[in-house]
Structures are given as structure tokens and as C-alpha cells.
Write a protein that binds this DNA or RNA. Structure first.
Length: 283
DNA sequence: AATCCGTCCAACCGCCTCGGC
DNA sequence: GGCCGAGGCGGTTGGACGGAT
């Protein structure tokens, strides 16, 4: 009975919802040191959680640049179209929706879009039955094909060429700063950035830090004049081709560099670490 | 006012892949 | 080549919440 001598003592991890204190600890730790090895994060941050839990919490909730709140019509259509192409590859779909997490998209699909698609399919089926009853034609496509075609048509209306550019963009390098600074955080003095927080009565520290970050003149100038100042506000991933967005991101990086913004923290790895202090975000 | 029920979403779980040893 | 740990992903669960009865 009891523990075998060689048996590893499994640490008792806390489960369930995260408290604001835990969020703060995790946030502070990652902001200061980056996440590095996730399994060591809870130890260093003084949390009773496992690394996976920390990672998930960061990715799905604490990470800067997350766009919260309702999905736009365009985002919805993007998900529908990509789901037709990729299936339940939520992480890949999420790559095409800046500021959205795979978990969020998955939840949205299961709670709303799936039903919508099924309803559409049923409607198609009933139409089809009527069609069969009134026509002897055997050229009617099956309902699922019809649904696919419908969605494809919707996709075309979005001027989004999924068959080429979306696929190509899946091989794009990971989003850099743009991944953090999605339109909500880029908008200058816009109300949408805080609408979610306000509507939910939330105002977590990080977002307020981000808000302060937005208010930084240098950044504001950079962002409002940069490639994200215009179309990106309206989800340029949909309006523009993926390659354009990719170029925008590169241009954005250049602009940031030109403005001296990046030079705030020379030598810091742009892809992984960042630091925030005194209401200013350094990369 | 109470409780029932459906929905939403944060978080967990298990599996897979990859890299280091 | 096998083992192990870490990271990533998709499926699922459970609790909070709001509307209906």
C-alpha cells in the first residue's frame, strides 16, 4: 500500500476555472520571462496548475490581441468555407482568423454554425424532394454538394480565393506582432476594442495595459498610418488575399522597425518574447 | 418564486507528433 | 530503434447563465 519507492509522486494540480489571481500570476510571469518550457511555467509562476493548463489559459484567454465577442458575418463565412475545405482542423482555420482561437472557433461551430449548416442541408433536401417530385431530371446534384457549392459561392462573394491563397497561406510563417495586434487592439481610440470588456463588465489588467499601449503616440501613429490602419480593420484576411495580408504583416514589421518601435528592446526575439512595463509594450 | 431545460464556453482529457537522449 | 517528455490538436465535459414554464 502507499507509494512505491520508485513511484513518482504526482503533484496535485488545481483544476477548474482560473481565478483573477492565477491569471495575474501567469500573465505577469509570461510578460516578464516569456513562457519558455510550459511545464516549468507553473513552478516559476507559483501556480498549482500543470503546464498544459497554463498554456491553454494563455492561448485562449490571456494572450494579447485576442478578439473577443461576437463573430462577424465575414468571419462566420470564412469559418464555413474553411470548414468545407479543411474539416475539423480548428487550428488551421484559426490561422485565417486573426485574434480568434481554435477553441473559440470550435465552440462557435458546435453551438451555432453546425446547426445552421444542418438546417441549410435539410432545406436543400426538402427542395430536392420537391424538385424530384416535379421534375424527371436526374442531373440534380445531391444536397451536400449543393451545400458545398452554396458555401463556395458565398466564399466567392467574399472575394476570397480559398482554393489557392488560403491553402498557400497555411504555409506562411506564423503571424508575428499582427497576431497580437488584431484590429481591436490596433484601432485608434475605437470603441470596439473595449466593447467586449465593457459589455461583460470586464476590464482585466492586461487589456488596460494594451489600451495604454494603444494610446502611445508612437504606436498610434505607426498603426494608423501602417498597413493595418485601413483594410485590416475590416478583417483584411477576407477582403484581401492571404498574400496581401502576409505582405502587410511584413510591411507592418518594417514600419514598426522604421518607427523605432522595435528598437525599444534591441536583441529581443520578436517571435516569442515580449515585455511590458510602465504601460508600454516592448518587443 | 422556483425549477427545468437548453445554450454557451472555459477547461480537461486523451491521443498524436516531434525532438532529444 | 526505443523511450520519454513536451507541445499541439480535436473531442468532450461540466458549470454558469438565461429563458421558458
Amino acid at each position: 500500500m502507499g507509494l512505491q519507492p520508485l513511484e513518482k509522486a504526482k503533484p496535485k494540480y488545481k483544476k477548474g476555472l482560473w481565478s483573477p489571481e492565477e491569471d495575474n500570476k501567469l500573465k505577469t510571469h509570461i510578460v516578464k520571462h516569456g513562457h519558455g518550457c510550459w511545464s516549468s511555467v507553473p513552478i516559476k509562476a507559483g501556480l498549482q496548475r500543470n503546464g498544459k493548463s497554463c498554456r491553454l489559459r494563455w492561448i485562449n484567454y490571456l494572450r494579447p490581441g485576442l478578439k473577443r465577442g461576437l463573430f462577424s458575418k465575414q468571419e462566420e463565412e470564412t469559418i464555413l468555407s474553411l470548414h468545407q475545405m479543411l474539416g475539423n482542423k480548428w487550428s488551421q482555420i484559426a490561422q485565417h482568423l486573426p485574434g480568434r482561437t481554435d477553441n473559440e472557433i470550435k465552440n462557435y461551430w458546435h453551438s451555432y454554425l453546425k446547426k445552421k449548416v444542418m438546417a441549410n442541408t435539410k432545406e436543400m433536401e426538402s427542395h430536392e424532394q420537391v424538385h424530384y417530385a416535379t421534375s424527371s431530371s436526374s442531373e440534380t446534384m445531391d444536397s451536400s454538394s449543393q451545400a458545398v457549392q452554396n458555401l463556395a459561392t458565398q466564399g466567392t462573394h467574399n472575394n476570397y480565393n480559398f482554393t489557392n491563397e488560403a491553402c498557400q497561406s497555411s504555409s506562411l510563417p506564423k503571424l508575428l506582432f499582427a497576431e497580437w495586434l488584431t484590429l481591436d487592439h490596433v484601432q485608434c481610440g475605437g470603441s470596439s476594442a473595449n466593447s467586449y470588456d465593457e459589455s461583460l463588465g470586464l476590464k482585466n489588467g492586461f487589456d488596460s495595459q494594451i489600451s495604454s499601449f494603444q494610446e502611445s503616440a508612437t504606436v498610434n501613429d505607426t498603426l494608423s498610418q501602417g498597413p493595418f490602419g485601413g483594410d485590416y480593420h475590416n478583417n483584411s484576411l477576407i477582403h484581401n488575399s492571404a498574400s496581401e495580408v502576409y505582405n502587410s504583416q511584413l510591411k507592418f514589421g518594417t514600419t514598426m522597425e522604421e518607427s523605432g518601435f522595435i528598437h525599444c528592446m534591441p536583441g529581443v526575439d520578436f517571435s516569442g518574447n515580449f515585455n511590458m512595463s510602465n504601460d508600454t509594450m516592448y518587443i
